[in-house]
Design a protein around this nucleic acid. Structure first.
Lengths: 155, 155
DNA sequence: CTCTATTGCGTGCATACGCACCCAAAGTTG
DNA sequence: CAACTTTGGGTGCGTATGCACGCAATAGAG
C-alpha cells in the first residue's frame, strides 16, 4: 500500500483558522452574546430569550413553526427555548383552530418584562454600535443579512 | 399606585428585532454553521470539531486554558468539546511538567482526519466566499475581528 | 367517505455554550 | 517550612442547537 495519507499542511491549517467563515462567525457570536447577556443580566433575561419575547410581541399569536422560520432556527430548538419562558409565565402556548398548531403569546408578565428589558437592550446595542463605529455597524448588519441569505436560502 | 409599567412599544420591538447585534450575529452564526456542517458531513466532523483539530495542529501541545483563549471560548466549554474528539481517538490530553495542565495533542488518526477534511472545508469556504462576494467577505472578516475585539476585550 | 400524503409539533440523542463552584498544583510571603 | 494566594482544570446546572424519528391533525385523491 503506497497509498499514504496526504501530509498535514500546517500552512493550510493556519490559513483555515484565520479565514474560516464558520469559526469567525461563531467566535464573534459568542463574544457578542456574552456582551449582551452581561448587559441584560439585571433584567433576568438572556439575549436569546429577549429575542424570543420580542418576536412573540411582533408576531403576536404566531405558530411555533412560523416563528422558527422568522428566527432562522430549527423548530425543535425553538420548542425547547420556549420552555423556560413558559415556565416563568412570560409566554403562553395555546392551540389554534388547527388543533396541530401551538400559538405563541406574550402574557402580561411577559409584556412587562419585555418592556422593562428593552431600554437595557438599547443601551447595550448603542454602546456596541458606538464602539464598533456606526458606519461599520450599518455595513456589518447588511453583510449579516446577506450571509443568512447565502448560507441559509441556498440549502 | 399610579405607577404603571411602561407600555410595550411595538415599534421599538420591530426596531430591536431588526437591528439587534446579538440576534443578527447568532442568526448568521446558525446559518453558516449549518452550511459548513452540511458540507463537512462526509468527513464525519462538525465545523466546531474541525476548528478544534485545526487549532490543536497549529498550537501543538497547548494547554486547555490557552487554547480556550485562542478560540475565544470558555474553558469549560472547550473541556467538554474535547471529549468527543478524545473518545474518537483524534486528540490526546497529556499532563505537562506542571501537573495541573493538560496539553492537547493531535493523534495520528486526528492528523489523518484533519488532512482529509481540509480540502472539504476549503471547498465550502470558497463556495461561501464566492456567493457572498470576495470583496464583501474580506470586509466582513475584518468586521468580525473588530467585533470580537469590541465585544470581548472590553469586558 | 376512505386512503394517503402533508403538515405541525414534540422527543431522544448528541453536541455547544458559559457561569458558579470545587479541587489540586504551583507560586508567594512571612 | 507553613499559610495564603493564584492558577489550571473539571463538574453540576441550565440553556442553546439541530437531526432523526414518531404522532396526531389536516388536506388531498379516488
Amino acid at each position: 500500500m503506497s497509498q499514504c495519507s496526504p501530509p498535514l499542511d500546517l500552512q493550510k491549517c493556519i490559513e483555515a483558522a484565520t479565514n474560516c467563515a464558520c469559526f469567525n462567525f461563531r467566535k464573534a457570536s459568542r463574544a457578542v452574546t456574552q456582551l449582551f447577556d452581561d448587559a441584560l443580566q439585571p433584567t433576568g433575561l438572556r439575549s436569546t430569550q429577549l429575542v424570543i419575547l420580542i418576536a412573540a410581541a411582533v408576531f403576536e399569536g404566531v405558530s411555533v413553526s412560523r416563528l422558527a422560520k422568522e428566527l432562522v432556527m430549527d423548530r425543535s430548538t425553538l420548542t425547547r427555548n420556549l420552555r423556560p419562558l413558559e415556565r416563568r409565565g412570560l409566554i403562553l402556548l395555546e392551540s389554534g383552530k388547527d388543533e396541530r398548531t401551538r400559538l405563541v403569546r406574550l402574557t402580561p408578565a411577559g409584556q412587562t418584562d419585555l418592556a422593562a428589558a428593552l431600554p437595557v437592550w438599547e443601551q447595550a446595542q448603542l454602546q456596541f454600535q458606538e464602539k464598533l463605529g456606526d458606519e461599520r455597524w450599518k455595513q456589518l448588519l447588511a453583510s449579516l443579512g446577506a450571509t443568512v441569505e447565502v448560507a441559509h436560502d441556498s440549502r
